[in-house]
Design a protein around this nucleic acid. Sequence first.
DNA 1: GTCTATAGAGCGATAGAC
DNA 2: GTCTATCGCTCTATAGAC
Lengths: 205, 205
Amino acid sequence: MAKRAGYHHGDLKATLVAGALELIAERGVASLSVAEVARRAHVSGGAPYRHFPSRQALLTAVATKAAHTLADRLREVSTGAGPDPVENMATVVAAYARFTAEHGAGFDLIFAVELSGRGNEELADAGRTVMDALLQAALPVTGDAKAALGLIGRTFAAAHGYATLWRSGLYINRNSTVDDVTSEAAAIARTLAGSVQTPLPRTRS
Amino acid sequence: MAKRAGYHHGDLKATLVAGALELIAERGVASLSVAEVARRAHVSGGAPYRHFPSRQALLTAVATKAAHTLADRLREVSTGAGPDPVENMATVVAAYARFTAEHGAGFDLIFAVELSGRGNEELADAGRTVMDALLQAALPVTGDAKAALGLIGRTFAAAHGYATLWRSGLYINRNSTVDDVTSEAAAIARTLAGSVQTPLPRTRS
DNA sequence: GTCTATAGAGCGATAGAC
DNA sequence: GTCTATCGCTCTATAGAC
């Protein structure tokens, strides 16, 4: 393993983004440093600045990548879940919980960076892609766009809370795994989605 | 306003803890620095180390203080809520959401620091005080300790998620306030507590 | 108990060699 | 496009004067 001498990369930019995502998964967004990402990629501390003008720019790229990955996964599980709208919603919420628990970041990374990093169209697009996937899961449950947004807010807040609290070690005594987080999130979503579906505005009978 | 010359304090220790709490409310736990806390209290950078041996120790003191404040507030709202167990639970959950949204930290600060900072009995006690308040609110709903823990996990995860997502700016477009976060958390708690109460193991009819 | 001063470390970002 | 080297900053923690 050569040490920092004449090292060559096929695609350092992508390597840096991937490495940053890993690092966030290990230590959280706040403590992510460009220097550490560079070290992980076996390049010098200055190298990343040929690809990203600032730490913020790197973070934006990471958020964009995360958004695409998340949107893909949500769409994946959504098509695979049966015809029951509530069960489908639960599956999508569970997938978000798993993603956030595994990556140590979710909506907070994807949407909050969007706010501070001004004028990045790529990230905004990626965020919209995620939002589309959410609406596609929630709309069949509520039948109404406004209600769907409310349901999304409730269920994904719960999933996010579960994932982050689990990450911060809260359930460590109960030996809970990421699978437990996922299934708990699904259970909450089932209850919340079920309770909103009860009025059933779309049934004809 | 004299600048760092012969400054005297009645109780610097308490001032530091209070200042640290404020700072966490503004910028989050991760970026809390002893240096900044000292600056806020108008003392030198070394002064805090006469009261706390390390940043970790300061953080532990802050978490302990936060736990006591939270436990007090939860007990307060709990006694004031009517006889309906579900409504009482919703009120307590809402109070937690408000606390976390306002302070930028909740269970994550109180219980996670407890894990890393080894052997601090004061913080552990404070944590137990909080947990007692939660159980006292949840037990009348479920009638069963195990089910109460489950309900606590679900409702407070949701409240925590709402508060932290709100904090990260997610609902900024909807012009939502901390009051909205509070009432949304209450609504979720009502639904979740109501759905677990349905079997009603304690009714006699 | 608070001050000044400082050691030692990590980070963001830039400059110039290759 | 990557390297080496460096500036300037902030932070944690300690030492010694008062």
